Computed example of a mutant assay.
Amino acid sequence: MKILRYILFPIVPIYYLVTWLRNKLYDLGIKKSVSYNFPVICVGNLSVGGTGKTPMIEYLINFLKEDFKVATLSRGYKRKTKGFQWANEKSTAESIGDEPFQFYNKYERDILVAVDVDRQNGIKRIRGIENPPQVILLDDAFQHRKVKAGFNIVLTTYANPYFKDMVLPTGNLREPRSGIKRADIIIVTKCPEVLSESNKATILNSMAPKPYQHVFFSSIAYANTLISVHSTLKIEDLKTFTLVTGIANAKPLVDFLEAKQLDFEHLNFKDHHEFSQQDFDGLNKKELIVTTEKDFMRLKQFESLQHKLFYLPITVKINDKSKINKLIKKFVKHS
């Protein structure tokens, strides 16, 4: 795969020019964006996958849901339905996508969850209901320029920050680095739990944020208890197991489990992998399966796996939680 990316390097200038020109047309107002007079918060990135958007959306849900009526709007990547869809008791990962299905399963009593590739139409449908939500969270819509979110939170990983990357197909960037100027908040995700001030300063110097931008650093916090459909299991009680991942970057989870000196094999599938009957037959032979919450949403459909299928919850730890919360609440209250 890496060799192919280098072979495709001549395409990089073409991709760069096309995406740069598209953004410039929106910046100049030649291509039109729709703004809103109510709070719309976008969580996105410059690169393809693996920056931690889902945990960040959940962070916002947990922070906002006590004071505001919240809705999430996603495209519903790889779902087998079309158009606008509300999440409901009949929804599955196949009908609305794995991340929205995860949001619905965790927060169905607290928020509304919807999917639509056309974010303008999605927002219109969400706001068109009786007693509409006060805040809409857009999941992975930073490049969806037809909608102009009032507040943009852009994520970039500590291991592969956007300022050291290049555009597709050789790099991972969906658009040129200059797109970062549209961000209100930049979060460096998946940092080491202890990050020195000098290391932060080096990153900030490379990033050179604009005066209106705020930069934060976050790390992943893993729970001590794994969860299944029917029971829970302490990490210290884990013995031999199979780790199953279908996410963009499983390395932080693998590193965490290895640091615990646990004995496991790792079946690493591509991001948003659609588990087939053949996959199920192989997994059904395993004694104990540990997976991510996103993969759990897809795998739990196989009833015979449910008694041995567990996921490890994660949360986001942000270095200056009070400051970012104040910035978010200020935007919501004054929109």
Results as ranks from 00 to 15, higher is better:
A183E: 04
H214T: 12
P192F: 02
L238D: 15
E193V: 15
I180A: 11
Q134T: 06
L238W: 00
N131P: 08
R125M: 12
T245Y: 08
G179D: 12
Y222W: 13
Q143A: 08
P132R: 02
P176E: 10
H230Q: 15
C191F: 01
N160D: 06
T225S: 11
G171I: 00
P161H: 00
F142T: 07
D116G: 15
K200C: 03
L173Y: 08
V167Q: 03
K210G: 04
D139P: 07
I185V: 14
L155F: 12
H214F: 14
T157F: 11
V244F: 06
K234S: 09
I129N: 06
T157I: 08
N160S: 13
Y222L: 01
A223H: 03
L155I: 09
V147N: 11
Q120D: 09
E193A: 13
R174I: 12
V115P: 07
A208I: 03
T232A: 14
S231D: 14
E175M: 05
R174E: 04
R174S: 07
I220L: 08
L233K: 13
S218K: 04
A114I: 08
E197W: 15
Y158G: 00
L173G: 05
G246C: 15
N160T: 11
R125Q: 07
T232L: 15
V115M: 05
H230D: 12
A221L: 14
L112Q: 07
A159W: 05
I129D: 04
H214N: 15
T157E: 06
N199W: 01
I203G: 08
S218R: 06
Q143S: 07
E193Y: 09
A221R: 10
F151H: 02
K164V: 04
V113P: 01
G122N: 04
Y158H: 09
T202S: 11
T242W: 10
S196K: 14
L204Y: 05
F217V: 01
F151G: 04
D237T: 09
N205I: 06
E197D: 15
T156I: 12
D116K: 05
K124E: 14
I126M: 10
P161L: 09
L243Y: 15
R125N: 13
V115S: 09
K146V: 04
Y158N: 08
V154L: 15
L173R: 03
G122T: 04
H214S: 12
A159N: 10
G128P: 01
P192N: 13
L243D: 14
N249M: 07
S178W: 15
H144L: 06
Y212L: 11
T156F: 09
A221T: 10
L204E: 14
K164F: 11
I129L: 13
G246V: 09
V154H: 10
G179S: 14
I203C: 05
K148C: 00
S196T: 10
S218T: 02
I247L: 11
E175V: 02
Y158L: 11
L204A: 08
A223S: 06
F241Q: 13
F216P: 00
V135R: 07
A208T: 10
F217M: 09
R145W: 06
A248R: 14
I153P: 00
H144C: 12
I186H: 02
K181R: 12
Q143R: 15
N205C: 05
I220T: 12
V244D: 01
T242D: 13
F241W: 10
K190G: 02
T170R: 10
P132K: 05
L226P: 07
P192K: 04
S198F: 11
H144R: 10
